[in-house]
């Protein structure tokens, strides 16, 4: 494993146990643990195999009962059936009491957990044990410039970021490394979650400038090989983006 990749992996894993913006460190680790357990959930397996998930009723096999039921549902569906998540489903979570920003942070924790678990499984490495939770309260700060309308959740566009917000698009030192594509904005309602995700993705995959620098190979496989793998995983997960 490249040393930069190992460093990024370890740092992303450590951050799972830190207090977040909307969840405590303990709660974030419960989300990660529930994400891992979801792959063995019989209800999820039945639902994922059904023509429509709406046609199947049942109960999740829950590993972390301290989490709210709506969070359990979100974690399990995102882990086991991501290609059929629609806004109607998202609104049922909201109606059940899961806040918009806590949901975004939950998505980031699931994504980091899945990415590192899949990487290590593919590499033939054992899964990492979850880190220890660090004490502290969530900061509960929502960016004042966030606006609805792009997807299911509000987002913070680069031009709406204020000095009170973290440097989520990496404006400094310029030029901006995260250009502000929709995929960059997806988690931007919770800037530290967006940073958590992109810091590790840019080592698992490539940074934006590296991706667009076709004359140089930054990895031990070439650009075409990287994009072939990326496209295949997107197709397997039925990702339209």
């Amino acid at each position: 494993m490249r040393s930069a990749l190992e460093t990024a992996q370890n740092e992303a894993w450590r951050r799972l146990g830190l207090p977040g913006t909307w969840w405590t460190g303990q709660e974030r680790l419960a989300i990660a643990q529930e994400c891992r357990a979801a792959t063995g959930c019989a209800f999820c397996a039945t639902r994922a195999a059904a023509l429509s998930p709406l046609t199947v009723a049942g109960r999740h096999d829950v590993a972390e009962p301290s989490l709210p039921a709506a969070a359990i549902e979100a974690i399990h569906r995102i882990r086991t059936d991501p290609g059929r998540l629609g806004e109607t489903w998202f609104l049922t979570l909201r109606a059940a009491g899961l806040g918009e920003a806590p949901y975004v942070e939950l998505v980031s924790v699931v994504a980091v957990t899945v990415a590192i678990d899949t990487f290590r499984r593919g590499s033939g490495l054992p899964p990492l044990p979850l880190p220890a939770a660090e004490p502290g309260a969530p900061s509960r700060r929502r960016p004042t410039g966030a606006k609805p309308g792009l997807g299911f959740v509000a987002t913070l566009a680069p031009e709406d970021r204020t000095e009170a917000d973290p440097d989520l698009y990496r404006d400094h030192p310029g030029p901006r490394r995260r250009v502000g594509a929709n995929i960059h904005r997806a988690l931007s309602l919770v800037p530290n979650s967006m940073i958590h995700w992109w810091d590790v993705l840019e080592e698992l995959y490539q940074s934006g400038p590296q991706m667009r620098d076709y004359g140089v190979d930054y990895r031990a496989i070439g650009h075409a090989q990287i994009e072939l793998l990326a496209a295949r995983v997107a197709a397997l997960n039925r990702c339209e983006y």
């Binding site: 990749l5 979100a74 995102i78 991501p82 899949t118 698992l204 496989i221 997107a234 997960n237 990702c239």
Partner: peptide, 27 residues
């Protein structure tokens, strides 16, 4: 090294596809 980087791309996209789908962002 190629194997490690290939597994890393697969892991990264197994995560990012979930972000795209779970937030409903459009192309």
């Amino acid at each position: 090294a190629g194997l490690s980087d290939a597994a890393a791309v697969i892991g990264g996209f197994d995560g990012i596809t979930r972000i795209a789908e779970a937030t409903g962002i459009p192309l």
